[in-house]
Design a protein around this nucleic acid. Sequence first.
DNA 1: CAGATTCCCTACCAAATGGTAGACAACCTG
DNA 2: CAGGTTGTCTACCATTTGGTAGGGAATCTG
Lengths: 199, 199
Amino acid sequence: MSGPQTSDRILDAALASFGTRGYDATSLDALAGMLEIRKQTILYWFANKEAVLAALIERSAAELTEAFEQGLKGTGQGWEKVAAVVRAVFRLAARRPELLGLVREAARLGPPAATQMITALDPLVQRASAFLEAEMDAGRMRRHDPRLLLLSIYSTVIGMVTEVEVFRALGEEPSAKSLVRRRADVLALLRSALMTPEG
Amino acid sequence: MSGPQTSDRILDAALASFGTRGYDATSLDALAGMLEIRKQTILYWFANKEAVLAALIERSAAELTEAFEQGLKGTGQGWEKVAAVVRAVFRLAARRPELLGLVREAARLGPPAATQMITALDPLVQRASAFLEAEMDAGRMRRHDPRLLLLSIYSTVIGMVTEVEVFRALGEEPSAKSLVRRRADVLALLRSALMTPEG
DNA sequence: CAGATTCCCTACCAAATGGTAGACAACCTG
DNA sequence: CAGGTTGTCTACCATTTGGTAGGGAATCTG
């Protein structure tokens, strides 16, 4: 009964606000205000503000991992697989932009938040890294340092999905349509960057 | 005599701190502490904290513009020009990492800071956009939406240069050497992404 | 149904923060 | 050298913020 647990609702609100306004810019009072509860209720469920962030990162990393796995399930091979993952990320950007915003925010905040997020996502990174390396070994992809390549892809995609303000300034109102165009462009770019001409 | 003007020293400190720790996480007291002055001195030179940021963005945009022009001066053509600009950005990342950190921070903060930064850098964006379009028209580059392409390049490069934490977590201590490797990789990636096979 | 537990609340609090008011010394300038 | 200007400071202040202490209603449990 009684809808979702308070602690979950707190994390929902925290995700929305940390992922867009940022951690520092979100006070516990503001968070409580969004839920029409008192901040002391938040502090009943979480030891302190940092603990809210930590719990949020854990939950979000799990959700991200799941979304990725989703993108990998169908499993084509080679480029198709990369494209599937990128599409999964863009799908996520459309449905839950705050989630990717939080990844960025965590990276920005530095330890311990960044470390926690990256550690939680590490299995994903390992798999992706191994996959890229295998593709390169098989000659289906141009050779690069897989970790650097991964970082490039990460930078590009998360930027395209996250840099709302830059986008707006370039005269592109954020919308579903514009996101689709960005996705198409990123895919085209990555395709020509990664694939060998014959691939 | 007497070294640089106080207001300049304030902006120097603000750049160092806003560009790394972030705007919210930098108090006027902390800023003053770095310079061994009182915060009231800062408020003598700048109306308020926001005004410090505004002045800093203005100064930094000018410096960025200059660095870019530098990278464009020698003027090869086509890919060489893109590479020259990317190299200029990486040179900047080595010498003045906070400057690129500030760009990112401004974009993150949203209006008015983001608007101001983007407006100040607009001439650069226009030039770059026009250049890319011309290259495409001349068939020396794969065709993309120039603005989206620019945003991709921006995302990739600023990420590679800025995502210190992600980098550290990938086991790469930030260092001059690692920056050079990242530069090489970004260049290789962009080259294969942008150039037509015969170009 | 007595007693413990769960959950949210009111009432505070100390520290930090952005900002105001105004003193005061050093330096120009007539 | 008198009087203003410049640049920094001390003294405050209101607000916000993360956090503590503890009360009380509802619910669970023996």
